[in-house]
Simulated scan of single mutants.
Amino acid sequence: MLSRRILWGLSLSLTLASPVFAGEFKLAPKAVLELFTSQGCSSCPKADALFKEMGKRSDVVTLAYHVDYWDYIGWPDTFGTAENSDRQRDYAEAWGSSRIFTPQMVVNGRGGVVGSKTAAVNGALASATLPLTVSLTEQQGGLVDISVPANADLSGGTIWLITFLDHADVTIERGENEGKQISYSQIVTGRQVLGMWDPKTGAKLTLPLHEVLTGKANGAVILVQQEKAGLPGPILGAASFTL
């Protein structure tokens, strides 16, 4: 059963099977904030801490992608994957850039800023908006209904399921952050396509939680994102829950 520890990406209609709590949340978050970070990067701990604070905001959904391209300097990131590094490279290519770096925060898939610079992150968030409402309704049997309305003013997008671990403390034993214990949040553990969003008809899906939250994952984001020539484009809407 979903608890009250819920971060909602856009609009959530939640009905619990238990009579203890039932209600509707419409917090209208305006941004999905993606952090590209590495445990082997000396500039990243400040960004990791800022990212954790941003995750406390009701108007922001956060996802941390740990990359693997700094592993060679002495400490393999315990959460790093080649797929996460590829996602960052795909963003750079979509924006016409050949440069990737850590720490980087990406706002709504539209652009990136240095993730340790508070003013830059706040500036990028200030004008951020998400045009689509993603609604989630919990049903009996561990099922969650996903609903995304039609919007003929937009072009279509892909509906993604992104699982995450909401918290982990890691002691870095080697490399640039040797000896530090760093607190990480919203650590991406997997990504998969759920379906397509049609701007004329919208989309409705049902998700079995017990088949989704496997391994260390204890939360997930439902995210609608456009693509351009196979590369990630603007994020249109999202919803997030944590068990």
Rank of each mutant, 00 (worst) to 15 (best):
M1V: 12
R4G: 15
L7H: 06
W8N: 13
G9A: 03
L12P: 01
L12D: 06
T15W: 10
L16Y: 07
S18T: 13
V20Q: 13
E24N: 09
E24I: 10
F25W: 10
F25E: 10
P29T: 04
L33Y: 05
L35I: 03
T37N: 08
S38Y: 00
Q39W: 01
S43Q: 02
P45G: 11
K46Q: 13
A47T: 07
D48W: 01
K52Y: 08
K52P: 06
K56N: 13
S58E: 15
V61Q: 04
A64L: 03
D68V: 00
D77F: 08
T81L: 09
N84M: 08
E93H: 14
A94H: 05
G96S: 11
S97I: 01
R99Y: 07
I100F: 06
F101W: 10
T102R: 05
M105I: 14
M105Y: 07
G109D: 02
S116L: 07
V121S: 04
A126Q: 09
T129H: 14
T129Q: 15
L130I: 05
L130Q: 04
L130G: 00
E138F: 01
Q140H: 11
Q140D: 15
G141C: 13
V144M: 07
I146D: 08
A150I: 10
N151R: 13
S155Y: 08
I159V: 14
I162V: 15
I172N: 08
I172P: 05
R174H: 15
Q181P: 11
I182L: 12
S183M: 09
S185T: 12
I187Q: 00
Q192W: 08
Q192L: 12
G195W: 08
G195L: 11
G195A: 13
K200H: 10
K200G: 12
T201Y: 07
G202H: 07
L205Q: 09
L205I: 10
L207H: 03
P208L: 11
H210Q: 14
K216D: 15
K216S: 15
K216P: 15
A217C: 12
L223G: 01
V224N: 03
K228G: 15
P234T: 07
L236Y: 03
G237C: 06
A239D: 08
T242N: 13
